[in-house]
Amino acid sequence: MRRGTATDGKPVLRLANGLQMRTGNLLAGCGLVAATLILAAWSTGLGLTDTGLADLLRALSGSSLSDAETYALLTVRLPRILLGFMVGWAVALSGALLQSIARNPLADPGLFGFSQGSMIMIMLLLVIAPVAPKSLVALAAVTGGLCVAGLLLWLVGGERSSGLTIVLLGIAVETVLSSFGSLLLLYLPTETSITLSEWLAGSLFQANWSVIAAFTPLFVLGLVGSLLAGGATSAYDLGTEMAQALGEPVARSRPLILLFAVVLSAAAVTAVGPLVFLGVLAPHIAGFLSPAVGRARLLLSGLVGGILVVAADALTRGIAAGLPLPLGLSLTMVGVPLFIIALRLQALRKLQSH
């Protein structure tokens, strides 16, 4: 590994295999990892039971804990922290992928209708089989998302279609699916409708190790696939025609990127329900912290997404411990102010540069 300078004058580290990474992206990634660990350690101590990180370390060293402490740490808090971080990473990564291929900073799984497709398939499954296993729910979510992706690719047409066309068609599909979902909630039995409404608000209340076990295979598949195909996103950021001019096989790589975005989105919807706007928030905040392209942008976006969800859950358990606050609402309370501050500072930075 040796130091160097990129074409824009920014310092980079060049690896022996020819790959390079910006020093600023590396420092930002290390900072986000440190923030994740600090937030997770603090979050283990939040809740009605008086226990936390010290007790967890004591248990790992062989000391025994009371039943209440064991339940609070190992059954409730650790699964929520781990699942929240993974879900936040998945949604943020999906949003970052879609923003690149659509060349639209507002693109996310909800805007394209992927989340709605997954939700409707899950709703239909739970109406038919209320006690369906998690594996079947996950399969239904992926199937719904893939059906929407296939429809979108068919509507878009050839490889020369623009990112704007994809976004506009995605909005149209999302509107139809949202209307159908609202219709389902309206005419379902009251008990089922209330249960589904709570799930649609997003929640980590049912986080446990079995949910994590069902979520992990889809998460790993989407994560590995996204990082393998993620190098193409730097070409898509320049536009479809420019990507083709640079030799990017658009007809093959765009459906592949869509596939991994759908898998990540479907996995998140299965685990906690839809997390509205997270796919937009996380990439923008990551871009403010350290502008990046390609795989670096995906990794930073994922880290920011995980941090936002863990922070939102900590807010729920710390401030509103006795109130069943939906994750979607607490995520808005944490993420939107940060998003506004980041955009405002970014605008001020541009004004100062001129």
Rank of each mutant, 00 (worst) to 15 (best):
S290E: 11
I128K: 13
P79G: 04
I212D: 02
G157Y: 01
L329K: 03
L126F: 09
T192Q: 15
V224N: 03
S234F: 00
G306A: 08
A72H: 12
P11L: 02
V269L: 09
L164M: 13
I101Q: 02
G9T: 06
L264I: 06
S210G: 06
V263K: 06
P130K: 02
F114D: 09
A172G: 15
V148Y: 07
A92I: 06
G117V: 09
F114C: 08
V224D: 10
D237K: 07
A267N: 07
I307D: 04
L74H: 15
G294P: 08
L19I: 05
L177F: 13
A132P: 12
G294V: 11
L26I: 03
L125I: 05
R22C: 00
S330P: 00
A149N: 07
T216D: 09
L298I: 11
L153F: 01
G322E: 09
N25M: 02
A132T: 10
I128N: 09
G231L: 07
G9R: 07
P109F: 05
L57D: 11
T44R: 06
L351E: 15
G144K: 06
S182C: 03
L221A: 14
F215T: 02
V293T: 15
T44S: 13
L98E: 10
R2L: 02
L221R: 04
K350R: 15
G62L: 09
I307L: 15
A132I: 07
L139I: 11
L73C: 13
V262R: 08
L300G: 10
S115Q: 11
N104M: 06
R297K: 14
P283Y: 03
T270I: 01
L98N: 05
G273M: 08
L228E: 05
Y236N: 07
T175L: 13
R295M: 10
S353P: 01
G62Q: 04
G273W: 09
T70M: 03
S210T: 11
V250S: 02
A292Y: 07
L289D: 04
P283K: 09
T49A: 15
L299S: 10
F339T: 01
G45A: 08
R77S: 00
S193D: 12
A54W: 10
I38S: 06
R344C: 13
L73R: 07
P11Q: 00
V148I: 13
P217K: 02
G144I: 01
W42D: 08
T5L: 12
F219A: 10
G170W: 06
L351S: 14
Y236A: 03
L124M: 15
T70G: 14
I341S: 15
M242N: 09
